[in-house]
Design a protein around this nucleic acid. Structure first.
Lengths: 125, 125
DNA sequence: GGGAGCACTTACCCAAAGGGAAGCGGTTAC
DNA sequence: GTAACCGCTTCCCTTTGGGTAAGTGCTCCC
């Protein structure tokens, strides 16, 4: 018999790893706007004002900050075209597309959840 | 002011709907801890101190607040057993399990992202 | 009876997130 | 000339998140 010195079970380690993964993911794509911005830019490249128009409720200040943050983390690229005046187009990188499934599931769940809330409100009335 | 009264294309509407879904989802499961807590409790029902021990970095104050919030939104149940002293077990509801896929994808992405970061750090050195 | 553990709560304080309004330097339209 | 648009930036403010530390009422253990 081999000596098993109270190793945590593999099952537990798996759980801990999954937890760590989720925690890590959340630390990168935290905040109210990042995922929505990425989805918006994955649908098509856009200019500053177009994004602001498309995402209801975001202020220019926050938008600028989030875009900078996403660029620093290589999720988007800021392309400057030397037209007059300069045109600036934000574009999702290939790496940001690794989040596609996450966004898909999150969107699906969001729809489901809204439906559930609507139903529970109907019951109450 | 040019008046171009273009109907948004159906494609655009789809995009807008997807965006709204994601935005809605984020408004419910926002914050650093909620998804991690749900994952933790979906793995198995636990007591307060067990959760605190399992999630590195969370303080009792925040844990209590988040648990209350999740209970209010029917993601978890707080079961009180009349032992002496009382035993309190937090349990994920069936509804919270609708987030399983989201958590799966998020965890998978978190692992992938950590790997990518590690590689880019290795390159730099 | 002293200490420790459970499940929190309370008080205090700090930092980050985020909202609103205004401005700025450039250009184009009237 | 002036108004408006673009892509921001700056200032100021409130809200929220979160850390520390202490306390509470209960019970079990030595």
């Amino acid at each position: 018999m081999s000596m098993i010195i109270n190793e945590p079970l593999p099952r537990n380690e798996e759980c801990a790893a999954a937890l760590k993964n989720v925690l890590d993911a959340l630390s990168v794509i935290n905040g109210r706007w990042k995922l929505a911005l990425l989805l918006c830019l994955m649908q098509s490249s856009k200019r500053f004002n177009e994004i602001q128009h498309e995402i209801p409720g975001i202020s220019s200040r926050i938008l600028a900050k989030e875009l900078k943050d996403l660029e620093l983390n290589y999720f988007i690229r800021r392309n400057v075209y030397p037209t007059t005046p300069v045109t600036i187009i934000y574009e999702a990188t290939e790496y940001s597309r690794t989040l596609k499934k996450v966004l898909g599931e999150l969107g699906a769940w969001g729809g489901l959840h809204r439906e559930k809330i609507r139903q529970s409100m109907r019951k109450q009335s």
